[in-house]
Design a protein around this nucleic acid. Sequence first.
DNA 1: CGAAGCAATGTTATAGTATAACAATCTCGC
DNA 2: GCGAGATTGTTATACTATAACATTGCTTCG
Lengths: 143, 143
Amino acid sequence: MNTSDYLAAADAACCASGTRLTALRRRVLELVLGYPGVVKAYQVLADLQAERGVVAPPTVYRALDYLAQQGMLHRVDALNGYIVCHHFECTHRALILACERCGKVTELSGDDAFAALSASASAAGFVPREQTLVLTGCCKECA
Amino acid sequence: MNTSDYLAAADAACCASGTRLTALRRRVLELVLGYPGVVKAYQVLADLQAERGVVAPPTVYRALDYLAQQGMLHRVDALNGYIVCHHFECTHRALILACERCGKVTELSGDDAFAALSASASAAGFVPREQTLVLTGCCKECA
DNA sequence: CGAAGCAATGTTATAGTATAACAATCTCGC
DNA sequence: GCGAGATTGTTATACTATAACATTGCTTCG
Ligand SMILES: [Zn+2]
Ligand SMILES: [Zn+2]
Ligand SMILES: [Zn+2]
Ligand SMILES: [Zn+2]
């Protein structure tokens, strides 16, 4: 799916949830799409500032939070950043593989793996909410 | 295992790895042991400052990093904190369950779950390093 | 139309987390 | 004692994130 189609699909998904993909949110999403791997909030902030002059952190964090809520982005705690989700339409668990050397990030479906974790968690009476699992390590190219 | 025995075992493990559980590192470990759940670096920093006067962040971060390397602590990225590992002798994967309501943290063996994730990762040629998996959600008491 | 109500964004200030870089001190074997 | 390497101290700064309140803009209903 190219960027234009992706944005159109994202727009539709936002409308479907009764919210709006505003110009700002759309632009933030475009900026994140423009990077290959993990994107930091302050990188987006710098980009926006380059375009618009004064922009404050909350502007960026709000947009990123919104996009993550809608499923277009996954937050990656271990890296203090965000990655684009390319299949936000389907409700899914993400398994993110983050290479510690080159910074490349790959997203797999984590549904199977998540089932295994949920089994362990359920035994402790725990109900997991978080959908994103992260493994750091070394990718194929850097091995 | 009580605190005293734990510290003795930790000391032995450090020696076995050719390193030293210095007075500072030991004290930091004691402080972390004194808290029930996740402990923040700056909480430890404040405690140390109360005891010793001026203490700077690197002092604490170094000790925490060391203890995490040795296996006495697990870093929990999603919470910007650390938890005590109560079975650092055995090499193991941690599966951490963090309750979003009460803040309680439970650690399970994550070996089985990790095997499932590794299988997915291996298919992508990825070699995982990180040992700590975190699930956020709601614990039994808060359900 | 126009005001009310709510969502979104702007603005200012501050809180919280982490590391770089270099100096001083300590430990241990020789 | 002496030197090498590990540890800790010190200073400064970078990076990440949110609180709190003001302003703007859209939508709906009378
Ligand atoms: Zn995804
Ligand atoms: Zn790589
Ligand atoms: Zn453990
Ligand atoms: Zn709870």
